[in-house]
Amino acid sequence: MISIADLLVQPRLPGSYYSSQAYVQGDLEMGLLENRRGDRLLAIPSPLIEAIYSGLQRETGQAAGMVLFNCGRWWGKNFYTRFRDEVTDYYEKPLVDMSMAEFLHCLKDCWATYGWGKLEFDQMYHQRGFIILRTTNSAFANSAPADYKVPVCSLESGVLSAFFSQLVGRDLHTIQTTCESLGDTCNTFIVGTRSRLDAAESMIEKRDSHESIMTVLCA
């Protein structure tokens, strides 16, 4: 027999942890922006992102993408740790025991509430060892210089690479095949092992389509 009183033993009925209206809180008198656990949040204005792109381009030239990717890897490690702690605490369930649907539900809400845009997951190539993620309204794609000829969301690629590496306990890499900054409707990322993604690097530089890249990767 189900006891309602027993269902209410926990301090809360878990709902939408990353609901933007509940997650982002502020103390204007103290000048603080915080999440619902009291961890400090930092808002980054678009001019800063534009300046990071142009500064890196001037200082490091073609290595700018790699620098951003490595920054994203570092950021992604911390992002994963915070995401895991928050979700585990709130839903009282280890991340690895969550169903994929529940996990993605949280990640999508988190991504949107952090102002990183809308995240979609495509499981079509999961059985072939690749995760496909699509984002729209990326702040990084929108703030990149117009003269980049390749996908520019290197920071997000790094974040996703570190995030999924930590999640599954394997060293994973991420490449980007489409980009809003190049007129595509979304930013498409492929997450997989580095050795299997290497073949796609030159195809991305030649601006081959996502579909043709996937065909080569899965061959």
């Binding site: 690895v96 169903s99 994929m100």
Partner: peptide, 14 residues
């Protein structure tokens, strides 16, 4: 119902 066993948990990824 989303009922793809291969995606049952995060642990099953990769």
């Amino acid at each position: 119902v989303i009922n793809d066993d291969s995606l049952l948990t995060v642990a099953g990824l990769f």
